[in-house]
Amino acid sequence: MNSLQHPALQTMLQRGQLFRGQQHIVETNQQRASTGYPQLDQVLAGGLPYGQLHEVQLPGLFCGETALLRAPLQSAERANHPVFWFNPPAQPHVSGMGLSHARHTLLQGLEDDELTWAVSQVVSELSTGVVCIWHPNLPAQAVRQWQRRLHGELLLLVFTCHMNNEARAYHSRLRLQLEQGQLSWDVLKRPGGWPVYGLGERLQAW
């Protein structure tokens, strides 16, 4: 029997904990924001790295994606960094999120071209902070442009309800499924690893 056929190895391979040769070495010294979900953090080598663009695909709004914001917002809070909210689905509640010192800017009611332009401006100018974007389906060109312009420690999170499998220039792509309060995370794309499917988590309130 081929050693790779061993059930334990197969499980590790499926979970992305074991890679074949020539794999990319994950930069462990890169600063990362915890996702709030332990299994997801483990697969992502500690969380979502700063200075990158990440996509989160959702079956609907408020399905558990807010937990992803906790660590980046706390980091911005500590460092008084700017936080940009592009077309948020509801009003961020500063008391609920525990925000006091981070500098917040909301951009509401933006059309597609306005949003693309505004995010490009932010990405070009700032090197620290958090940018959260809600958009049905971003064009590939905009994603590529932002990823290229990103510099420093600016974290970009794109939330979308469109389950898109087309190739995009995101650093990592996550897909969330929610059934009866049970979360299931799929990591569609991540650096240095294959996709990982079905990371189960219990959806907790904020």
Binding site: V94, S95, H104, L106, Q108, E114, A118, E125
Partner: peptide
């Protein structure tokens, strides 16, 4: 940057929050 965003998008659509 904020001046530019407000100029293009309007003051009503670019704002912050305070307690």
């Amino acid at each position: 940057l904020l001046n530019r965003l407000q100029m293009k998008l309007g003051e009503a659509r670019v704002y912050g929050y305070r307690r």
